[in-house]
Design a protein around this nucleic acid. Structure first.
Lengths: 224, 224
DNA sequence: AATAATATTGAACAATGTTCAAAATAATAA
DNA sequence: TTATTATTTTGAACATTGTTCAATATTATT
């Protein structure tokens, strides 16, 4: 009967799992809960129940639920980065087409992993800035795939200029996607009149954004 | 001693305030609390204490704290709209300069009313879609000032095209501002190297965005 | 003056994050 | 082997939160 998790009278120091295993267990359970029931239903008690531990145990691994959220976000960002990089590496298509495919990947990701993706932006990052520099590095990485594409197609241009453009372009696409996902862009929804509606409208808008911005890169007068 | 709010034994049906007055009282108090202590510290009990009522009273006026948030957001959007409209109506400056001034107003607003502005994007809008169509109208209004400027300077172009461009441009600016305010844009912060840092960097980026997009409007090949 | 309507309360409920002393077990030393 | 130390895990508690609702005191009406 020793180390049997079903035996609730056997208390303390079960040591079924190392700290690292426990961390994975907790994050896996948390991920499941958010995937099934949304991010508002992620609680310490819920995680505990799911892995056969008590809420307090979670605080042995994470100092607070907020930090746990940061680690969930880390997983989300890793997945997003992988997806973007895969898309950026494909060898076919024109410049604009590649840019659109990257944006398209971002759209799909925001749909497919909506609650996780939303949490990226609702988690307060202030505490994170103090102790978790790895977090900011993961953020920066998200901008890289676009930067790579721009470098490839704008050879010869100033590196700083390219960096600025990729940052601006990415933030712009993000702005459109964000307002779309959160439903704060009625422009993209109203099916009335000659407007397209929903995702199609978003894709059209993003195509136009990319087309216009790329044309502007050659035509504009000022630089960074 | 009748109707004296200090007399706590005088209970029920004080009728010091009409429902409408109470609504204003509650929202005023809520606004103060958020302004001083941030939006996380906005609680039904806190509001009640501040106006000399009990938490339950708030539920006579608002069906839930979430709806109260929507009404706070309404105030925020009204103020933002006023500010943007004022800026858009000024008669001086070139096209690009006017666009930048509008964006600049948005930046200032997001700084000055940060917690209120943030709440606009953290409040879940789903419930609102059911019963509060006035809310979506307030959102739509935010896009109008930019639309007005574009119409003014792009006379002769297709109205639908202009609407699309103003929507895209506004969302793009918003994307940049949002990532800046929430601290998720390390590009705008790293003071290292030759990058500008902080607000100056944001302004530079937005200037470049506007410049590039406007140049692109004339140079691009596809339209909506 | 009696009755109906209603604004307001106070107390409760369930759920949350979080803390921490106590307990049980593993690791180590004697 | 036995005793001691160190560590993991618990369970119970605390403070807050949103929210509900019967009871009550006041106003309005008949």
């Amino acid at each position: 009967m020793i180390n049997d998790r079903k035996d609730l009278s056997a208390v303390a120091r079960r040591n079924d799992h190392s700290r690292e295993e426990l961390k994975e267990l907790i994050l896996d359970a948390a991920w499941d809960i958010v995937a099934v029931n949304g991010s508002e239903s992620l609680t310490a008690r819920g995680i505990g129940k799911k892995i056969g531990y008590v809420p307090g145990t979670i605080y042995n691994i994470f100092p607070s639920m907020e930090v746990l959220h940061l680690h969930l976000n880390a997983r989300t960002m890793d997945m997003l980065f992988e997806k973007l990089e895969k898309t950026a590496c494909k060898k076919n298509g024109t410049f604009e087409e590649k840019l659109f495919q990257l944006a398209s990947s971002y759209i799909r990701f925001s749909e497919q992993y909506q609650p996780f993706w939303m949490t990226l932006f609702t988690t307060d990052i202030q505490e994170c800035k103090k102790n978790h520099s790895w977090y900011e590095e993961k953020i920066e990485r998200i901008f890289e795939p676009l930067n790579t594409i721009l470098k490839q197609y704008l050879r010869g241009k100033d590196a700083r200029q390219i960096e600025a453009d990729s940052y601006i372009l990415w933030s712009s696409v993000h702005g459109l996607v964000y307002l779309w996902v959160t439903g704060k862009a009625s422009y993209l929804e109203a099916g009335q009149g000659q407007r397209r509606s929903g995702k199609k409208a978003l894709e059209t808008a993003i195509r136009l954004l990319i087309s216009t911005y790329v044309a502007g890169i050659s035509a504009r007068k000022i630089t960074v």
